[in-house]
Design a protein around this nucleic acid. Structure first.
Lengths: 228, 228
DNA sequence: CTACCAAAATGATTTAAACTCATTTAAAAT
DNA sequence: ATTTTAAATGAGTTTAAATCATTTTGGTAG
């Protein structure tokens, strides 16, 4: 079992595992999950069919591996893309920009995320980990008093990622490239209209008052907070 | 071929077609697309396996049938749920409420929508038809001067449906029922904070000024409108 | 009423691809 | 050098989708 390698170096096992993942990612992206044959993937990874099954229980599990790795890397990239000293609003813009760009680039893998969690089970752990990047930015905003402390982070998370994913789908469908206005507009409605966009009046500091006011007014409307 | 029935009544053919769809919908929802066997579906519809293939080219096509019918019915229901004389804001709330409720109820079918369009092809026609309900409400708002005329309807559509779908996923994951605050908050950020929610101050007419102002301020930020 | 025809339905058979496992090969320990 | 254990192999098995030669059904005409 590769799960507990004693006699062989862990490094080699991991190298093979990742070469299988590379091959799978390539083939899945090319022909989709259903179109992909495990024999093809094995060939692309230069191993025998049976070897794939030493590392992954089945084809589903292989997909989960590909998708999981993608989101793990996305988390690392997102953390790198965010300047720790920037304002909450700037950090959200950095994350939004990074997120939209990434899911456009790896659109096929993102789409397959939904197939990697069979039958209404929990989300992939790696996806949950990823969305925490958003949560941390928001929580930090609360701690720094840039955001009201009873702001519904969970609901705004769905606004943020839901909008960006649907926008990415729309852009793909129309064969358009990354469009920064999507992020700008999203932040405008989420957090008020302090502008950092090109073409906007220069020399004016983004004010956090807009952000506070907008979110406070949302807050007033919140009847029942559906999470802790 | 059932495509051109001459000797048999169209009604009977359609009855059988829809009984196969009913069976497929039931089995798909129960065990998912991959878990479903065509033989099971045929059994549930009281026909032979081969008969299924007279009506649908393959299993994928059968899924497309189930999913397409769902969105067609959703369009009809949405149109019925919207009062033509209500304000734009009220109509959006009606649509949002109806949409969230419906996709929560038929969550499995909605999830399978993405599998019904194989390999980055166009959206299902029925889905495109459905989202036009939103577009018409918005366009009507523009025509009535309740909305600025250069409002980016396409982008707001992604905010609307993206947020609701991700919110539904979150609610399902946490095993919570329909939560109206999701719709209320979404409208608050999309369209300003005129409250119609329970517990809010009564006797105050929802003002359209909020709506205009919010959207105007978004408008200012729009650098390039990425659609007509 | 019976013979005829075409549409519709059937399910045994074919096909294809996921998955298994007895065997071989390679690596590590003694 | 020998033994032991891990890793890899691919022919063979299994499963389920899809096909198609045959049968059944329902309508039409003589």
């Amino acid at each position: 079992m590769p799960a507990t390698p004693r006699h062989t170096s862990r490094a080699r096992v991991e190298a093979k595992e990742s070469s299988i993942l590379d091959a799978a990612e390539k083939i899945f992206a090319q022909v989709g999950f259903d179109g992909a044959k495990v024999s093809e993937i094995a060939r692309a990874a230069s191993v025998a069919q049976g070897t794939v099954y030493l590392y992954y229980k089945n084809k589903q599990d292989l997909l989960a591996g590909v998708v999981g790795r993608f989101w793990t890397q996305l988390t690392l990239g997102a953390e790198a893309a965010i300047e720790p000293d920037a304002t909450t609003r700037e950090q959200l813009e950095q994350l939004g920009r990074y997120h939209l760009n990434s899911i456009l680039e790896q659109f096929e893998v993102v789409s397959m995320t939904y197939r990697a969690r069979p039958q209404q089970e929990q989300d992939l752990d790696q996806v949950r980990e990823y969305v925490r990047v958003f949560d941390r930015i928001m929580q930090r905003g609360v701690d720094r008093s840039e955001l009201p402390e009873d702001i519904p982070i969970g609901q705004l998370r769905d606004v943020f990622f839901g909008t960006l994913e649907f926008s990415a789908r729309t852009l793909k469908l129309r064969e358009r490239p990354y469009d920064h206005s999507v992020v700008t507009n999203l932040l405008a409605i989420m957090v008020g209209s302090s502008s950092t966009a090109a073409g906007a009046p220069k020399g004016k500091e983004p004010s956090n008052r807009d952000l506070m006011n907008t979110l406070k007014s949302i807050q007033k409307q919140l009847i029942t907070s559906s999470e802790s």
